[in-house]
Design a protein around this nucleic acid. Structure first.
Lengths: 235, 235
DNA sequence: GTGACATAAAAGTCATACTTTTCGGCGGCG
DNA sequence: CGCCGCCGAAAAGTATGACTTTTATGTCAC
């Protein structure tokens, strides 16, 4: 048996290992893999390898051609919205680049989502939003960064959900990854920016009061802060 | 043999058929499929079916569990950023909903992308942008909708590429699908809105002149137009 | 009624044989 | 010398059957 992560079946394990290897830059774009070779390397049957390759292919990470093998595609063609690809890349070496891309995406999407949330949010969602904002306030000082993170993630997830747009809603996981990544890779000693905390509270207010333009504008400020912080940390 | 699309192999064909069926609402969420059954239905081996199921699983369209079968997941869990899922849904019954979601996403992303493009675009990209805008002008009248569409898609793709953000760049396919869908599923007789065409030309100008805020603002107008048009067509 | 256990159903895995496509070389012809 | 077409082999694609593993469900004893 192997000593590596083999929790949920061979398929998952091989997929994760290979995906990570590819996104990490081993197997650079253009290099070819052969199924038989992979089968030997992972000590599994060709069946498993083929299924893995098919999934990798569906993420546009590789392309499989007869008589040629499985060739790694150029980075520009990855399906970067696949949560697994995101996770692999965040775990790999170009984590900073990835974080920046994702933060820029957030800064584009979240303000619009907040504006929509102001008109679409259910009372329940408004309540939830306020609750999470208050939770952020309560945990914003004294080094309770982990607890703060939980509320932060929940807050943004509710906003995206409440927007009523499924494309936005599905970005909840992405945002969660970004926030978690930011918290975990920063100096863990400093408390979050009080201004940002206040902004979250005010966004919750704006949504509750159905003030779309204010919700959007405030969220834009939050996003601007996140971008700024990124520039400070990784110029 | 079958008379359906079988161009690039059994796998592709079965995947497309099944994916379409699921996203179209046959096989509603919660319903279960068995691999053997599917193998019979499509007259292919279990091998092929298993690979298809694995890909479908990677899109979060289905979940495969032992002793239970392949169960269709609730819509909220689809990986809606997968180009194939988008295409299937655009071809299916909830095309209006899908088109709206995507257009809202565009309206959030493209203005920001245009702003970034103004500062990041290479001279080559500026040239390309201008060229496509002019192409749009040239084909904007006289029922040359197909030719217009080509330039329209190319234009938006260049903007997203030139933003320098990979997440934005990868939305090129999505935007292409939306624009194509809009053109092909609409009354084919009316020429595109002249105001929109002009706006595209002005965006190209703004980018060329490195005027980020203007590029963003103009693109916001284009997006607003697209949203408006959507409301007119599907209230 | 509750809990442990047996059963069987379905996916997961493997090995193997066979088919199809296609790259790359080789030879002939211009 | 160079181009074109044919041929063979390499690699993925497909099919099949046997076997393993998990697990939902029914059954039986308590």
């Amino acid at each position: 048996m192997h000593m590596t992560t083999q929790g949920q079946g061979l398929h998952t394990h091989v997929l994760d290992t290979l995906g990570l290897a590819i996104t990490a830059g081993e197997c650079p774009p253009g290099s070819v893999l052969r199924t038989d070779e992979l089968a030997q390397r992972f000590e599994v049957s060709r069946t498993v390898i083929r299924e893995v390759v098919r999934v990798l292919e569906s993420m546009h990470l590789v392309e499989s051609r007869r008589r040629v093998g499985v060739t790694v595609r150029p980075t520009a063609q990855w399906n970067v919205y696949d949560p697994r690809v995101i996770r692999w890349r965040l775990a790999g070496s170009d984590r900073p680049r990835q974080l920046r891309s994702l933060t820029v995406l957030r800064s584009a999407v979240e303000p619009v989502a907040a504006g929509l949330a102001a008109t679409h949010a259910t009372p329940e969602q408004c309540r939830e939003l306020t609750e999470q904002a208050l939770g952020m306030v309560a945990t914003s000082r004294g080094g309770q960064l982990e607890a703060y993170l939980v509320h932060d993630i929940a807050f943004h997830r509710v906003v995206l959900d409440a927007s009523g747009n499924e494309m936005f809603a599905r970005l909840g996981d992405v945002v969660a990854e970004v926030l978690a990544g930011r918290t975990h890779h920063r100096v863990m000693f400093e408390d979050p920016d009080p201004a940002a905390v206040t902004l979250h509270v005010r966004v919750a207010e704006a949504v509750r009061e159905r003030d779309a333009v204010r919700a959007e504008e405030l969220t834009r400020e939050i996003a601007a802060g996140a971008l700024l912080e990124l520039d400070v940390l990784a110029p």
